[in-house]
C-alpha cells in the first residue's frame, strides 16, 4: 500500500519540478533585474528539460527556504547559489553543476587577492566562465 503512494508523491514532485523549472527559467531574469533594465519581453515559453529544471527548482528552494534564514555569508557577488543558478541556466545542467562545485570551493577566506572587490563583496560573474561561441 505504501509503495503506490510513494510513487504518486514522487511523480507529483517530478511534475512540479518541471512546471516550476519552466516558470523559473523564463522569469528569473525579471526577478534579478530592475524594471528599468528590462528591454525585451520574455518571449515564448522554453522547455529547459528535466535535469535543468530540477536543479533550478532545488536551488530556488534553497534560496527561499534555507539561505534566507541565515545572514549572507558568501564572500562573492553574485552569491554561490545565484552563481549556480546562472551557470546551470547558461551552460546547462552538467557544466553548470561542475562550475557550481568549483565555485563552492573557491568561496574561501583566501579568495581576496584574486578577485575585484566592489566595495562590499568580491565580484565573480558567471559570464567569465560561460562564454557564447560566435
Amino acid at each position: 500500500m505504501k509503495k503506490p503512494i510513494f510513487l504518486f508523491i514522487l511523480a507529483l514532485l517530478l511534475l512540479t519540478n518541471i512546471a516550476l523549472g519552466q516558470g523559473i527559467a523564463k522569469w528569473s531574469d525579471y526577478w534579478e533585474k530592475p524594471a528599468s533594465l528590462i528591454s525585451e519581453p520574455p518571449g515564448p515559453i522554453t522547455y529547459p528539460g528535466f535535469f535543468k529544471s530540477s536543479a533550478l527548482v532545488w536551488i530556488r528552494i534553497y534560496q527561499k527556504g534555507i539561505a534566507s534564514q541565515d545572514l549572507p555569508a558568501c564572500v562573492f557577488h553574485p552569491s554561490c547559489s545565484r552563481f549556480a543558478f546562472g551557470a546551470i541556466q547558461q551552460a546547462g545542467p552538467v557544466k553548470g553543476v561542475l562550475l557550481a562545485g568549483d565555485r563552492l570551493l573557491r568561496c574561501n577566506p583566501f579568495a581576496l587577492p584574486y578577485y575585484q572587490f566592489d566595495g562590499e563583496k568580491l565580484s565573480d560573474q558567471v559570464a567569465r566562465y560561460v562564454r557564447n561561441k560566435k
Partner: peptide, 17 residues
C-alpha cells in the same frame, strides 16, 4: 563527486583565465 569533478573543470577554466 561535484567537488572533485568541479575542481578538475575549474582548474581547466581557471588556467585559461
Amino acid at each position: 563527486l561535484s567537488f572533485y569533478l568541479g575542481t578538475i573543470y575549474g582548474s581547466y577554466i581557471g588556467t585559461q583565465l
